[in-house]
Amino acid sequence: MKISKLVVITLCSVFLFATACTKKIDVGDFDSAKWIGDQEGCSSQRAEMIQDLIKIKPNLLALYHKSIIEVLGKPEAEELYERSQTYYWYYIDPSPKCDQPSENPRKLSIRFTALGIANEIDIK
């Protein structure tokens, strides 16, 4: 079976476009596995990682939803806001769902644009 040159060129163009649109994830020596393993902050490992998290905050800006999930795991909460913006929340201190919750747990808040790009990252 012969594949036409047009099909090959089209497939190559689609591949190049798709790979060019994703930003490489560079989070330095941040221990994603440790962060992801501490669901809801119940083990207080995330609280111990706060300085590492502050260091990588600039690297998380402009990443897509999928890339954020690769680094930080699935968020503990998410909300669709006006104009198709999305918020992700990750507990840093033990959440109310933990056996020994914090009174006022800190959270990492990430706001995404309608296109799914992280444009605001806060620790509250």
Rank of each mutant, 00 (worst) to 15 (best):
G28N: 04
R83H: 14
I117S: 06
D122E: 15
A33K: 12
K5G: 10
S43Q: 13
S102N: 08
L108R: 00
N119W: 08
C42L: 10
I3L: 15
G116I: 06
A62N: 13
L80V: 12
L11R: 01
E76K: 07
I54R: 13
K97A: 14
N119M: 10
I123S: 05
I56Q: 02
A20S: 13
A20K: 07
M1F: 08
E76C: 08
L6W: 11
P105G: 01
Q45I: 01
E120R: 08
S84Y: 13
E120L: 05
F15P: 01
T19D: 08
I69P: 09
F17T: 13
V7C: 00
V27T: 11
K5C: 05
A77P: 00
Y81P: 00
Y88A: 05
V8T: 07
G28R: 02
L61R: 04
K66D: 11
S95Q: 06
S44D: 09
I3A: 12
T10P: 01
I9R: 01
T22C: 08
Y87K: 03
I69S: 05
L16K: 03
K5N: 14
L72N: 02
A47N: 08
P101K: 01
C98I: 05
Y88F: 15
L80R: 03
F30I: 07
D38W: 01
